[in-house]
């Protein structure tokens, strides 16, 4: 049974008077615990696929199934709840909240959602605190917990973003070109950190990149070009 099932997904955008075919019948499956990379040149449709998996965009045709849930059948409220409980996000611009400290940024996803049926609101305060401190330690920012994003380097900010994405213990973490705004050394460290989290916590990571060198660390590689899958393989199968 697949964690993510993409079935003949199309996505068309209107651009002025023309229609851009961003995805043209893309199908693939992702297994639980995989470290998946979606690679391809700029404009190939990587971010569109991640947006579909992240349920922040809807397909023009086809079906996106997350944990056996057909996302096209869900209301906006249910989709938001699905995102909250099942998915974590890492962006190339980090997108941290500037007025919150490192600790508070990581805690922030736990505050979201409805109070009535929100599992994170039921967490005992001490357990929540221990979990956030554990994540801070895992990304190596123990000494920066009370700092604000403006006081951190790009690499440190992306570490905070990784910890934040894991705060709700999601099944899937999506990272849209997480190393694009970092130098190569820091970028490698971030990929390494995500891999460690994937192995330590068992969380499925799906990230996009146009850096061919990153492909070596992935379990599963999906290559995309002009909105279509060019190659789709598990590294173990190639070896």
């Amino acid at each position: 049974m697949s964690l993510i099932d993409f079935q003949h997904v199309h996505k068309n955008y209107p651009l002025g008077k023309t229609i851009v075919h961003a995805l043209q019948g893309v199908s693939f499956q992702v297994q639980e615990g995989d470290f998946v990379t979606i690679s391809g040149p700029s404009g190939s449709g990587k971010s569109t696929i991640l947006n579909m998996v992240g349920c922040i965009d809807t397909p023009s045709a086809g079906e996106v199934i997350i944990q056996d849930t057909h996302t096209s059948t869900l209301s906006d409220r249910q989709i938001t709840e699905l995102r909250h409980r099942t998915l974590g996000f890492i962006f190339q611009n980090f997108n941290l909240i500037p007025v919150l400290s490192v600790y508070e940024n990581i805690e922030f996803p736990l505050l979201l959602g409805d109070s009535r049926n929100d599992p994170f609101k039921q967490w005992p305060e001490q357990e929540k605190c221990d979990w956030i401190n554990y994540l801070i330690a895992q990304v190596g920012l123990e000494d920066y917990a009370q700092r604000r994003p403006a006081e951190l380097s790009g690499g440190q900010r992306q570490r905070v973003a990784i910890a934040r994405a894991l705060a709700t213990k999601p099944s899937i973490v999506l990272a849209d070109e997480p190393t694009a705004n970092l130098d190569s050394v820091t970028g490698d460290q971030i990929i390494q950190l995500m891999r460690e989290m994937n192995q330590t916590l068992g969380t499925t990571f799906v990230f996009s990149t146009h850096d061919p060198q990153v492909l070596d660390v992935a379990d599963h590689v999906i290559k995309i070009r002009d909105g279509m899958i060019e190659d789709n393989y598990r590294l173990s199968e190639r070896i």
């Binding site: 909250h84 996000f89 909240i97």
Partner: peptide, 14 residues
């Protein structure tokens, strides 16, 4: 805009 998009992506209800 980006911050709001980010919050919504993380699961903030409207």
């Amino acid at each position: 805009v980006a911050e709001i998009g980010n919050m919504r992506a993380m699961g903030a209800q409207a």
